[in-house]
Design a protein around this nucleic acid. Structure first.
Length: 487
DNA sequence: TGAAATGTTGGGGCG
DNA sequence: ACGCCCCAACATTTC
């Protein structure tokens, strides 16, 4: 196998040129490069455990592939787009291109692991070299273990261990030159129909996001320049732009966690509030790793309760209530604001995610998997490990989860974290004219106050679909029954 | 990375 | 001056 045979760089969740170990290895090999992306949808039997992408993810993927293709074109390379089962696509392309090697950065979801294992076997049988790298996690799941020798199940000791052992490896910049192989035919991105058409619901996404590697790096730089010092407090404030908003960029690998770690660590040298804020960001980055760690070692938690006692929880089957939650029509302003932000932008502030999750699971007693499925479809940062991990955290069914009886009061949370109601007013404009005092609880306002604000409960804005106090007691009673049944 | 119920304390009004 | 009550403020417990 001579080194002039091309190397296929198989892009997956690493849609970037900098800090891309697989790409760097391809460059180092001296081989001409065939960049490839495979849309491996449409053959669910061949890809068990890999879910179809959600709508918001499809939109993001389209944008991100367009940017990646343009960046590669700037280096004289054409990104080949192919659709089908990954083993089939690669088997064909290896032959077509006369490739001598395939490289990629690893994925960690159960279905992706099965797929990649099959690909590796196929390549071995075909006599083609294969090499994979870590470009997506700080520390891969099998490289960190407890003193007992098993996987971590609790975040804090995991974080301490990670903090102690992790040293960010050098981060490669965008390669200066990328030797191109002969172009291979591929699909037209538009033909994949990843974008919504009828209706085109993506207007809010287009307004909200700049997609791609440059945008991701700019986002990180802006955050570290401006917001990081106030991050520990502001990250709880949905009325402020205090979070990093890096999650979709990280999910698609437009930026890598090592880049974030390096940049945040460098910022920490300044000391003071910046260092405290950067440390908090690293901790959140470690949560991302921790969720992948859990999913890798316990793949069933993507769909099953970690705590089996929750299998006996009396979830309510209530499609109308689920729909009201999804559409932001619960009658609880903060919940509705969050759900509408999600629908419009493909994103929701983290604290509000916890609050709407608590409301669905506890106030409405609807299975967390319904919420997980909705988030999967609507979030631009939808990520199996994080989505399932965080929903189980909120539900109390997870490994290191919030206790079930920690039930958020949407009014109290609103008054605490959106004190002037700016977030509610933005996303629930029909309540915008209400005084601060009533904006999180319009049902408690006097009728003349409501009239002055143009609010007619049940007409211009829903009355609360449940009484939180009653719903809370109902959930706690159900929880008690479940616990007693499974002692 | 709660909330609500219950318990405790201490200041001030008042007879 | 004293005891009593009220209640806000804080602490503890419970789910």
């Amino acid at each position: 196998m001579s080194s002039d045979r091309p190397v296929i760089v198989w892009f997956r969740q690493d849609l970037r040129l900098a800090d891309n170990p697989a790409l760097a290895a391809a460059v180092a090999s001296g081989r001409p490069i065939v960049p490839l992306y495979i849309l491996d949808e449409g053959s669910p039997d061949l890809r068990p455990g890999i879910r179809p992408l959600g709508g918001a993810s499809r939109w993001w993927l389209h944008q991100s592939l367009a940017v990646l293709a343009a960046d590669l074109r700037g280096h004289g390379l054409k990104l080949a787009l192919r659709r089908g089962a990954a083993t089939d696509v690669l088997e064909n392309l290896v032959t077509e291109a006369g490739a001598g090697q395939v490289v990629w950065n690893r994925c960690y979801e159960p279905g992706a692991i099965a797929r990649d294992t099959a690909v590796k076997a196929m390549l071995r049988d075909a006599g083609v070299a294969a090499a994979s790298f870590n470009g997506s996690l700080l520390v891969e799941p099998w490289k960190i273990e407890t003193g007992q020798g098993g996987p971590y199940k609790v975040f804090t000791p995991y974080w301490k261990r990670l903090r102690a052992l992790f040293q960010a490896p050098p981060v490669a910049d965008v390669p200066d030159t990328l030797p191109a192989a002969r172009d291979v035919p591929g699909d037209d991105l538009d033909a994949w129909a990843l974008l919504p058409t009828t209706p085109d619901w993506a207007g809010g996404l287009r307004e909200t996001w700049r997609v791609g590697e440059d945008a991701a790096r700019a986002r990180l730089a802006d955050f570290l320049d401006a917001a990081v010092a106030d991050y520990p407090g502001d990250r709880d404030r949905p009325d402020r732009a205090g979070t990093s908003r890096l999650s979709p960029h990280l999910h698609f690998g437009e930026i890598g966690p090592h880049q974030v770690w390096r940049a945040a660590s460098a910022a920490m040298a300044a000391g003071g509030a910046v260092a405290t804020g950067a440390e908090a960001l690293l901790r959140e980055l470690a949560w991302r790793d921790f969720n992948h760690h859990l999913l890798f070692h316990f793949p069933r938690i993507a769909t099953a309760n970690w705590r089996a006692q929750f299998d006996g929880f009396p979830w309510r089957d209530d499609p109308a209530a689920l729909a009201a939650w999804q559409r932001g029509q619960t009658g609880y302003p903060l919940v509705d604001a969050g759900m509408r932000e999600l629908w419009h932008t493909g994103f929701m502030h983290n604290r509000v995610r916890m609050i709407v999750g608590s409301f669905l699971i506890k106030d409405l007693m609807i299975d967390w998997r319904e919420g997980e499925a909705w988030f999967w479809d609507t979030l631009v940062d939808a990520d199996l490990a994080n989505n399932a991990g965080n929903w189980q955290w909120v539900a109390g069914s997870g490994a290191d989860a919030s206790p079930f009886f920690r039930i958020f009061n949407p009014v109290t949370q609103g008054e605490k974290f959106d004190p002037a109601g700016a977030y509610v007013r933005r996303w629930v404009p029909e309540l915008a004219a209400l005084p601060d005092k009533w904006v999180h609880k319009p049902w408690a306002a006097a009728t003349d106050v409501l009239a002055d604000a143009g609010v007619i409960l049940g007409e211009t804005y829903p009355a609360p679909m449940v009484d939180h106090g009653v719903a809370r007691n109902r959930a706690l009673a159900a929880y008690k029954v479940m616990r007693n049944a499974t002692v």
